[in-house]
Structure formats: C-alpha cells, structure tokens
C-alpha cells in the first residue's frame, strides 16, 4: 500500500473509554473530557504497531484506519487478531 496510513474516528461511536491511549501512548493523548486527540498527519512507520493495537482494542470500534483498511491489509492488519 503506497498511501500513508492515517487514523480516523467515529465521534458518535466513541465513548471515551481511553483504551486507545493505553494501547498507543506515543500516539494518542486524551483531552480534558477523556476523548482521544489523534495525531494530525500519517502514522510514522515505527508507531504503526501501536496504532494497530489502538484500533484493534477500541471497544466501540470507533477508531479505524482511514480509507480501505490497515496498512498491510485486512481490518486487523497483517498480524490479525489481538496481540
């Protein structure tokens, strides 16, 4: 996949559980109300594993890869499933 991977969020689905921050502490911080602040640009290659964890762990399926799917293919990414 040539396109740089980016994260997107369904704000209606997000309930602010904060699981994403725990899964991707170098990418995601929570705002004053507990909702994630996503990185502006594409996900740097070395942080893709963290981003993948955050997407896979989101209990509301609110966090997702922008566009067609995870870098490496498939909704859950190259490794599939949970860690």
């Amino acid at each position: 996949m040539s396109r740089e991977p980016r994260l997107t969020i369904d704000w209606i689905a997000c309930n602010g559980y904060g699981v994403c921050e725990a899964a991707a502490p170098d990418l995601i911080v929570l705002d004053d109300w507990g909702y994630p602040i996503l990185p502006d640009g594409p996900i740097p290659p070395d942080l893709v594993p963290q981003a993948r964890r955050a997407v896979n762990d989101c209990p509301m399926l609110a966090l997702a890869w922008e566009g067609d799917g995870a870098p490496g293919g498939g909704r859950l990414g190259r490794l599939g499933g949970r860690r």
Partner: peptide, 12 residues
C-alpha cells in the same frame, strides 16, 4: 449530545 468533545466541551 452524541460526540464527547461537543457534549462536554461546549458545556464547559
């Protein structure tokens, strides 16, 4: 009141 930042942020 669907999205957290709007629901809580605007109230604050």
């Amino acid at each position: 009141m669907q999205c957290g930042p709007c629901k809580y942020g605007l109230a604050d």
